[in-house]
């Protein structure tokens, strides 16, 4: 247990010892801020116009017009940022040779995988916390329902963790960081859009494709719904790649 903590701390600090963490946080907040600015401007424009024509203001609400689409946008930024956070986790150690130090120390594959996973999840935690600033601004200027705000942060965090888990698997499988990043990105994007095919398929296949799409699960969180079905889906998307990564290390190094 303490070894997981040791690896976690070293990896997490590692993000901040290089420019990486700062660049990722900046990019994430900059793009997030841009989306937020556009949406909130659009929202205020629409509410002005409605007020001019005498419609009651309650016809539109800030949750539906700003916060929900904004959460969807944030998750899309995560989709692009996470491969860059996870690509180095194992691949870099393999390439540079430090894997030989790490794996000849008395640590088990699970220590390594969980320590590294938690470090990247820590980064996602930092991003999720910082992105909470935007909903807080809504709280200052409008009157949003705080429920969906909290559930969408939870959803964002779970979704990010599932993405990290997939990215870690790619990094454990490859020695090349770019390969790991591209494979992760491709896989996540496919998982994102796989339900588009449900339009042209029927019956069970259509349902399966719909179920596999992370987007549809995450959408529910953004709406303010916490359903065990979606939590179970995201948790299994976290656990399964972690399990495979640990097995991969174990098989390669004869544990």
């Amino acid at each position: 247990m303490s070894k997981i903590g040791t690896i976690f701390l070293k990896e997490f600090k590692g993000y901040f010892l290089s420019p990486m963490a700062y660049v990722i946080i900046t990019v994430f907040l900059l793009i997030g801020g841009f989306f937020f600015y556009v949406m909130i401007s659009h929202f205020s424009m629409v509410s002005f116009q409605l007020a001019q024509y005498g419609y009651p203001e309650s016809e539109i609400n800030i949750n539906d017009m700003v916060l929900r689409p904004f959460s969807m946008n944030l998750s899309l930024i995560l989709l692009m940022v996470i491969p860059m956070i996870t690509m180095r986790l194992v691949a870099e150690e393999r390439k540079s040779g430090t894997a030989e130090l790490l794996l000849t120390a008395p640590v088990s594959p699970w220590h390594v995988i969980l320590g590294k996973f938690l470090a990247a999840v820590g980064m996602i935690g930092v991003l999720a916390l910082l992105s909470f600033a935007y909903p807080l601004i809504c709280l200052l200027i409008g009157d949003p329902d705080p429920g969906p705000m909290l559930t969408s942060v939870l959803g964002l965090f779970l979704l990010g963790s599932a993405f990290v888990s997939c990215g870690l698997l790619a990094s454990a499988a490859s020695e090349n960081q770019i390969v790991a990043a591209v494979a992760t990105f491709g896989f996540l994007l496919l998982l994102w859009v796989v339900n588009w095919a449900s339009i042209v398929t029927e019956g069970t296949l259509s349902n399966v494709l719909e179920y596999l799409s992370v987007l549809s699960h995450y959408e529910e969180f953004a709406k303010g719904i916490i359903d065990t079905k979606h939590i179970v889906f995201l948790l299994s998307l976290i656990f399964f790649p972690l399990f495979l990564s640990a097995q991969l290390l174990a098989a390669r190094h004869g544990r």
């Binding site: 040791t6 690896i7 070293k10 430090t98 130090l101 000849t104």
Partner: peptide, 30 residues
């Protein structure tokens, strides 16, 4: 692995760490 100390060929270390922090990390893992 607990009984062995190993210096690999072409020593590669975690270059972003200080020497002491690196040794402390390895000591904790060991």
């Amino acid at each position: 692995r607990r009984s062995i100390g190993y210096l690999p060929e072409n020593v590669t270390l975690y270059t972003e760490m200080t020497a002491r922090a690196f040794l402390e990390y390895m000591a904790a893992l060991k």
